[in-house]
């Protein structure tokens, strides 16, 4: 336990931190700048397509948390009519097992990750709220067709430090995607 190297180590470390002073910061100014998320992002919501859903409840069975509540009755053409399709996103862990297991691609993970609410009750999403809309877009998780249409993810690895400056692709700022539903 000596100052064996006469402070050389400290000097080298100081030189490194000094070098970092001239590297561009990697901070992203979040609400103004947003990175493009992965095409397969498992966002904090689910998107449900009522026209494709047969009410088979495979999704509900595969959910580890028992989050999805489905109530159906038998309709005129001997099909299931979905009366209630409710997901408690407050308990959901966004594992994506329900989406993977749906045989009719009637369920998808959402793109958005800005779904904070003030009340827990607001996190329980009903049939109407789960539908596709402007603010509720599906992600490509386990849905290769949707995945192909989404923009490429911005990656920090591709960020060119030598060229300087922020080279990450950002989502253009839009008011619409700001708040939750």
């Amino acid at each position: 336990m000596k100052f064996e190297r006469y402070g050389i180590g400290i000097a080298k470390g100081m030189a490194l931190t000094f070098k970092h002073l001239f590297r561009p910061p990697i901070t992203v100014q979040y609400p103004e700048e947003k990175l493009v998320v992965s095409r397969r992002i498992r966002g904090n919501e689910l998107v449900w397509y009522p026209d494709r859903c047969t009410g088979c409840a495979t999704c509900a069975k595969s959910c580890p948390q028992g989050n999805i509540e489905i109530v159906t009755h038998v309709g005129d053409e001997n099909n299931y009519v979905v009366d209630k399709f409710e997901v408690d996103t407050g308990r959901c862990m966004f594992c994506g097992l329900c989406v993977e297991s749906c045989p009719y691609e009637a369920l998808a993970m959402g793109l958005s990750y800005e779904r904070a609410q003030y009340r827990r009750g607001q996190l329980v999403l009903s049939k109407e709220e789960l539908r596709l809309s402007d603010v509720r877009q599906p992600s490509g998780y386990a849905r290769p067709k949707i995945e192909a249409t989404l923009p490429e993810q911005s990656l920090l690895v591709n960020w060119d430090r030598e060229k300087g400056g922020q080279k990450l692709s950002l989502v253009p700022l839009s008011k619409k995607r700001g708040r939750g539903v």
Partner: peptide, 8 residues
């Protein structure tokens, strides 16, 4: 400190 730590 921010600039030393490559943040803003």
């Amino acid at each position: 400190l921010g600039r030393f730590q490559i943040r803003l």
